[in-house]
Computed example of a mutant assay.
Amino acid sequence: MKNQKGFTLIEMLIVLTVITTLLILLIPNLASKNEDVQVKGCNALKQLTENQLQAYVMDNGTYPNTISTLVDQQYIQTDTCSNGKKRLAFDELGNNEILIVDNEG
């Protein structure tokens, strides 16, 4: 009689069932966490832009007309959040408050 070391078909099916069950439980949880990560990343970009806005004011003595001026003069790299759905803009009231708004483009 040979001494075969290996998995039987039943053992392989059990392992595949366990892995499949874990994936079914894990994937929806990861999808919901992705949105949280995107929101935190966008808030971090807003905070960085607020800090760089102050640096711009110290350098130039005035506020820029748009957030894209900060990008053009390389105070920040982008005014768009990493998922591309949101961007930064000044509020409509003219008090130079930075808001996170939906990206039109």
Rank of each mutant, 00 (worst) to 15 (best):
I100Q: 03
N29G: 00
L99A: 01
L70N: 04
T49P: 03
K85R: 14
A44G: 04
Q52S: 05
P28Q: 06
L99C: 07
M58C: 00
K40R: 15
M12T: 03
E92V: 07
M12G: 01
A44V: 13
C42E: 08
K40D: 00
F7T: 02
K33C: 00
K2S: 04
Y56R: 12
D79P: 01
Q73W: 11
V15M: 06
V71T: 05
V18Q: 06
Q77R: 13
K2Q: 06
K40A: 06
K5S: 00
N3Q: 09
K85D: 05
N29D: 05
L93Q: 13
L13C: 03
Y63K: 12
I27L: 15
L26C: 00
L22Q: 04
I67V: 11
I76W: 01
G61H: 14
D59F: 13
I19Y: 07
C81D: 02
I19A: 13
D72N: 12
S32H: 12
I10Q: 08
V15F: 07
I76T: 03
L30T: 05
T62W: 15
E35I: 06
A31S: 12
T49W: 05
D59G: 02
L99D: 10
V57E: 09
Q77H: 11
G6I: 01
Q73L: 15
D79Y: 08
L16H: 08
K46L: 06
F7V: 01
P28T: 05
L53D: 04
S82R: 14
E50K: 11
M1T: 05
F90I: 04
K46Y: 03
D102N: 12
V101A: 09
L48H: 11
V39P: 01
E97N: 15
S68D: 13
I14L: 15
S82P: 10
Y75M: 02
V15G: 01
